[in-house]
Write a protein that binds this DNA or RNA. Sequence first.
DNA 1: GTCTATATTGTGATAGAC
DNA 2: GTCTATCACAATATAGAC
Lengths: 204, 204
Amino acid sequence: MDNTTIHDTERKILEAARKVFIAKGMHGARMQEIADEAGINKALLHYYFRSKDKLFQAIFRETFQELMPKAMGIFTTEGTFEDKLRLFVSNYIDTINKNHFLPVFVFNEINQNPEMLTEFVDALKPLQQVMAAELQKKVASGEYSAINPVQFFSNVMAMTLFPFLAKPLLTNAFAMSEEQFNAFVDERKVLIPEIMLTYLKTVK
Amino acid sequence: MDNTTIHDTERKILEAARKVFIAKGMHGARMQEIADEAGINKALLHYYFRSKDKLFQAIFRETFQELMPKAMGIFTTEGTFEDKLRLFVSNYIDTINKNHFLPVFVFNEINQNPEMLTEFVDALKPLQQVMAAELQKKVASGEYSAINPVQFFSNVMAMTLFPFLAKPLLTNAFAMSEEQFNAFVDERKVLIPEIMLTYLKTVK
DNA sequence: GTCTATATTGTGATAGAC
DNA sequence: GTCTATCACAATATAGAC
C-alpha cells in the first residue's frame, strides 16, 4: 500500500471531522461526536491524528482550498471577459451551493485565528491577478471605465457569497422555503455579472 | 435605584462579556476570561447571570440589534432615493467600522444556532420594506428598471459587509496596512451606491 | 454583593489488552 | 489497527463565609 493510498478508516475520520467541524466550528466540535459520526472510538482519532488541533488543521486546509474559487481555468480559456465573468459566478455559486456552511465556517475560523493564513497567503492573489489583467485590457482599450481591481473582485465575491453567509437570516426574514432560496440564488448567476458589467460599461 | 439602572458591576460584566464573546464566539469564550476582563471573579458572573448561556443570550441580543442597520430614519426623511442610499451605505460602513468583528460573529452564531432567530424574525423586514417601497416608486415612474427588492437589498448589504467579513483575507492577500484597509473601505461609500444606481438607471 | 473554596461534569488525550 | 478503561485537567456551576 503506497503512501498515496488513504486507509478507509482515515477517510471515514476525515469525512466525519469535516462534517462536524464545519457545522460546529473548531471550539464547538467534540472529538466524541466526530468518532460517533465516523463509527469508531475516540482513541482511533488520536491514533491517526495526534490531536484535535492537528485534525482540525487537516480539515481546514482542504476546506479553505475548496472555498477559494477555481477561476484560473476559466480566465485563461478563450472567450470574452463578459462570458468568463458569467461562467465564473455561475460555477462559483454552484460550488458553494453544495455546502452552504463553507463560507461562514472559513471566515469565522480565519477571524478567530488569522495566523493560520500565513500558510495560504498566496491563495487569493493569482485569482485576483488573472481577473485584474483581463479587466485592465478592457480599460486600456477604452471599453470599460477604470476601477480598482481589488474593489471589483471584492464586489463579485461579496455578492456571490453573501446569500450563503446570511442564509438563515434571509430565509427567516423573507419567509423563503428551500426552493425559493435556491431560485433566489440561481437568479443571481445572471444578476451579479449584469450589475458589474453595466457599471463597467456605463460609468465615465 | 430603579429597575432601569444597571449596576456598575453588571455593566462591567456586560462589557467584558461582549468583548470576549465577539472575539472568541460562544464556544471559544471562557467564563474565567470574562471575569478577568471585568476585574471580578467567576462566581459573580453566575450571580448576575445564571449561566454562560444566559450571559451569551444577553450579549447576542444586543449585538444582533447593532448589526441590523438603522435605516428607517434615513429612508423616512426628505431627499432623493440616491441620496438616501448613499447616506445609508456611508452610515452603515461607519457603524461596522467601529467593530470589525461584529458581522462574522453574528453570522457565525446564527448559522450554528438558527433557532435563535425566531426572536428576531422581524428585524430585517421593516428595513427591507421601507427600502423596497422607495425603490418601487422609482420603478413605477419609469426612472428605474425593475429589480427584485430582496436582490437589491442583498447586494447592498453584501457589498457593504463583505470587507469586514473577509478582512484578514483581504489585508493578507493584498498586503494592506490598517490605513490602506480603511481607505479601501472608505472608497466603497461612493462605489457601492454608484454601482447599484448605475444598474437601476441603465438596464432595460 | 463579593469573595474563596469546592463540587461536578465535560473533554482531550493516553495506557495497555487484544 | 482497534478497542475499553482511565487519566488529567479544563470549565461551568454552586456552597458558604464575610
